[in-house]
């Protein structure tokens, strides 16, 4: 494989890994728990910004060409870990909105507004995170320590992303395949009935906001460290819809479906369309991409609502069935009065 091809491949793999992480986080919130977080990309962004400013050092080092707050030069993997934690904290904070017992469609609207406001906020204040230009020269983690050739470093980064994916997989798999995951699905199916069974839906919402937010922030931090730049144009609210489409196409509620969706929608689809001949201007092409993404989500919801890899139907190992004829008493606590 020639060098250019290797660079292209490693870039695609990192891009895939980052999207897989994001899709797992979103799937936990939307696919499993039924929480509609249209501000999802904001969590990716805060992870990216936090990781960036905590590894870039003070902004005075750049001769005044970019301005940002909280500049610090922390050793790897601290910026990434703190970025993840900040994402989880933001999840707790925004999750509180959902505690006001908003109807889920209103909650979705609120989150969309949060996303738009966040972009406006960062774009208008240049002293905060360098405004619309965004941050550049974000150090690649461990690059100077390792001293590898660029292509070897790219492969190292693929490994770093793969390890992150493996760790996150353990987290999401354990949550979704446990009684906790079952309880989340119950909340998704009928919140009122879940409350009547004594389930703490408020705590569940906060938990999926925090865990999903943390995973999204990690994915953003990894992406920023790889690209070396991060600007508001990269986390417009429409990015959230690409991820939603990925979850819908892959299969809502399924972790494997999220991987398939991440591969098909943001990677193959968005990346693949680059190779198509340009019709009109490049802006027309970019606009068409969003339209097609929207149509893709609609088509799947209409014709294939369970997606390519549907949520697994749980089955429990057949145990001893109670023998017929000798009915055991109903397993109940009797009332003692």
């Amino acid at each position: 494989m020639n060098l250019a091809m290797q660079f292209y491949l490693t870039t695609l793999l990192v891009f895939l890994g980052v999207n897989v992480l994001a899709c797992w986080g979103l799937n936990l919130q939307f696919g499993v728990a039924g929480v509609i977080n249209f501000a999802f990309v904001v969590f990716q962004a805060i992870g990216a910004y936090t990781t960036a400013v905590l590894s870039m050092g003070p902004d005075t080092a750049y001769g005044g060409f970019q301005h940002y707050i909280l500049g610090n030069k922390l050793p790897f993997p601290l910026p990434l870990l703190i970025g993840t934690a900040v994402g989880a904290l933001l999840g707790l904070l925004l999750g509180m909105i959902g505690l006001r017992r908003l109807r889920s469609d209103y909650e979705a609207m609120v989150m969309l507004v949060v996303s738009v406001i966040a972009t406006k906020f960062v774009t208008s204040d240049t002293g905060l995170l360098n405004g619309p230009a965004g941050l550049a020269l974000i150090p690649h983690p461990l690059a100077s320590t390792l001293g590898l050739a660029p292509i070897d470093y790219a492969w190292f980064y693929v490994g770093l992303v793969a390890v992150s994916c493996a760790l996150c997989y353990v987290v999401v798999h354990r949550i979704t395949n446990s009684p906790y995951g079952r309880m989340l699905r119950a909340m998704r199916e009928n919140e009122r009935a879940a409350v009547a069974l004594g389930k703490n839906v408020a705590a569940m919402r906060l938990a999926v906001f925090a865990v999903g937010g943390g995973i999204a922030a990690l994915s953003g931090g990894l992406l920023a460290g790889f690209i070396g730049a991060w600007s508001p144009g990269g986390w417009l609210y429409v990015e959230t819809f690409t991820l939603f489409t990925a979850i819908i196409v892959g299969g809502m509620g399924s972790n494997l479906g999220a991987v398939v969706g991440a591969l098909l929608v943001p990677v193959v689809f968005l990346e693949g369309t680059r190779f198509l001949p340009t019709i009109g201007s490049s802006e027309v092409m970019a606009g068409l991409q969003w339209i097609v993404i929207g149509l893709l989500a609609m088509a799947f919801l209409w014709f294939w609502p369970r997606g390519i890899v549907p949520e697994r139907r749980s089955a429990y190992a057949p145990g001893e069935l109670p023998s017929q004829g000798s009915h055991p008493a109903l397993p109940l606590e009797r009332h003692s009065s």
Partner: peptide, 21 residues
Amino acid sequence: SEFARLTVMDNLLVGPKHQPG
């Protein structure tokens, strides 16, 4: 008010209180 996209067994298993999982 069943949990429609949960199996019958899963519906029942949501019932018990104080589950460590």
